[in-house]
């Protein structure tokens, strides 16, 4: 049976059209595939970069935070402690950077072809899972090297990853949608990412934060993600129940509002970009 499509001005809060998104799942896959494939073309190290980045970060952080600043890691080898944070952080920072640039980088698609626009920034975030997977293998290698035995909590790790994806998508969608109209985002983003890094417990534990600043500190959606990575991968982390719930709620708000805001703004994309 033929389907019927009605085109008319949409209301301010449009439905999510999840069915539409499902129909275009193959495009989603192809866009990720394209970006992964093109990313390391004409580089010497190729996918080796996915190994170099976290490992070098780990070495530098260990030297600065652990050896120079003397931050402890509560009995866990510091290298493992910080690498678990680096994995989550790299996925997040690369995800939001890529997604905020993705719409402008795909201007030709947006002005010439129809498909659910959500696919572009989402694919930009999710393609980071490839590098993330490589990083995870390295982490496993270091676990073995330090003969560190993760606890039963590791079965919860997929949930922590889902959380990390939701946080990256939420923030990424906000930046992507606003960035089409206001090119300030491209200027502000590297700076914002850098600032966020310092208020994310990658090189130190969030247990160090004074109680009166705690709520503010946990507003950063990545705080909960990094601590939950640590908890599931290493069995030990600073993750009080009330802050855990608070952090999940913050993340959900950012995620859901990010999607709705994106849908609200997307109808202007082709005219404004």
């Amino acid at each position: 049976m033929q389907r019927e499509l009605v085109i008319q001005p949409s209301k301010t809060f449009s439905a999510l059209h999840l069915k539409d998104l499902w129909e275009y799942r193959e495009l989603f896959y192809f866009l990720i595939w394209r970006d992964v494939k093109v990313r390391y073309k004409q580089t010497v190290l190729g996918a080796g970069w996915a190994i170099v980045r976290p490992v070098v970060s780990m070495v530098v952080f260990t030297f600065i935070f652990n050896k120079l600043a003397g931050f402890s890691s509560e009995g866990i080898p510091y290298q493992l402690f910080t690498l678990s944070g680096i994995m989550a952080w790299n996925f997040f920072s690369e995800g939001i950077t890529a997604s905020s640039q993705s719409l402008i980088a795909n201007t030709n698609l947006i002005t010439k072809v129809y498909f659910p626009r959500l696919i572009i920034p989402s694919a930009a975030v999710l393609r980071g899972l490839v590098d993330f997977g490589i990083g995870f293998l390295i982490f496993i290698g270091f676990l073995a090297y330090y003969s560190y035995n993760p606890g039963w909590q590791i079965v919860l790790f997929p949930l922590a990853v889902l959380w990390g994806i939701a946080a990256s998508l939420g923030v990424g969608l906000w930046f992507a949608a606003i960035g089409v109209k206001y090119r300030d985002i491209a200027q502000a983003l590297p700076f914002v990412v850098q600032l966020l890094f310092w208020v994310t417990p990658v090189g130190y534990s969030s247990a160090k934060i004074p109680a009166k600043w705690e709520m503010l500190y946990w507003l950063n959606p990545m705080t909960g993600v990094v601590e939950s990575f640590r908890y599931t991968l290493l069995g030990k982390a600073y993750l009080p129940t009330n802050l855990l719930i608070f952090s999940i709620v913050v993340c959900l708000i950012v995620f859901v509002s990010g999607i709705f805001n994106f849908r609200r703004m997307e109808k202007e994309f082709a005219d404004v970009i």
């Binding site: 389907r3 019927e4 009605v6 085109i7 001005p9 698609l109």
Partner: peptide, 28 residues
């Protein structure tokens, strides 16, 4: 508008069947 790239301000359009639009050669 008919290929849903941009929205109309007023009025509406009904399309019966699968739409393929080719506004440019080699998009993407």
């Amino acid at each position: 508008i008919l290929s849903r790239i941009t929205e109309p301000m007023m009025g509406r359009a009904i399309l019966r069947g699968r739409v393929a639009s080719l506004l440019e050669v080699g998009t993407g």
